[in-house]
Amino acid sequence: MNKAVNVRDIIKKNIKSKKNKTEKIMPNIFLLSASISILTTIGILVTLIIDSYKFFAEVPVKEIFSINLAPLSKNPSFGILPLINGTIITSLIAMCVAVPVGLTAAMYLSEFASEKSRKTLKPIMEVLAGIPTIVYGFFAYSFVTPLLMRLIPSLEAKNALSPGIVMGIMIIPLVASLSEDAMSSVPNSMREGALALGSTKLEVTLKVVVPAAISGIIASFVLAISRAIGETMIVTIASGSSKTLTFDITQSMQTMTAYIVEFTSGDAGIGTGYYSLYAVGLILFLFTLLMNLIAQYISHKYREEY
């Protein structure tokens, strides 16, 4: 007779074997790399907060909310309002382009377009989204600005209008694809109900589909604002570095992101000027974080399940 194989022995052997050790080690390795993403967030927060703290220790809070920004002068002042103003104005121009074009494009792709044209148009949108922002920056500076100068002679070589428009073009795919996703998830039965009552396609779109998908659409707008606020290269190249507070979009304005780039690429060294980067960075981070959280909140809270 063959020697009987004891299953328990095999199990015991297996438990002691090397294979089992890797089995126990692997999850920990994976957990370690998963925590890298958390470490990154912590790293961002800590670096921003520590160095902003050094900045706020030297500069009184009152000064930050002034309109004078002159970090390199003999009596440096760090009013952040011109930067916030520049950021908001360029983002608003971008939204004026991105919202109407993006939303109507989404309506067309989701409601009007045939399957065939949707299949060709969507990848083109994706190509537009995949172009590096530096390319858009070059495009804004070397093409859009000269073009606008012919229409508006008083336009300066660096201005807020041209990067705003180009930034809007850059964001169109984001608005279009997110809104289109929201509209496509509206069930067909609702469209059919409206069509059966004699609505035209436009009425179905405006009165049924858009209201039903409104949470996703608004979330896409908020994400687009967040993108516009955080966009760097286009505004750095085409909007210049004027630090005066102005509402004239034909003039140069500096955004928060452009300020950070100007100050790190020029040698600011270590000093209040250097730490001001982190203060601006912190405000920028909080702005975009707030926008992203609002977008998540809207799309979770007001999402209607069909």
Partner: peptide, 15 residues
């Protein structure tokens, strides 16, 4: 992770 995806790239530069 979804919030990290929304952080502007300049901030990563500062990091």
């Amino acid at each position: 992770i979804s919030n990290l995806a929304g952080v502007p790239s300049v901030i990563f530069g500062l990091l």
